[in-house]
Amino acid sequence: MQLDLRTPMGLMFSITGAILVAWGLKTNGDAIYAKSLGINANLWWGIVLLIFGLIMFFLGERRQHKLEEEPPPESDGTERRRGHGH
């Protein structure tokens, strides 16, 4: 499969994280955080998601580049191994 899931997934979590961070900064100290025990849940969890998303994104990108540099078709490896097993 040519599309590494980590790239779009990383992108999605990075954007979500960034949105939460921005929103958390804008609403910092608001009354809405009474619910979350006075913790700015948006800001902190946004940072966590942003870091997770970026790591995923770069892992996916790195693999994509590797595949483009040396294109050994994956299915060949599969067939060889399967033959080995039986």
């Binding site: 809405i32 955080y33 619910k35 979350s36 849940a41 969890w45």
Partner: peptide
């Protein structure tokens, strides 16, 4: 609904 303020509630 109890713990999440708007923002993370969407998540």
């Amino acid at each position: 609904l109890h713990y999440f303020p708007t923002g993370i509630l969407g998540l």
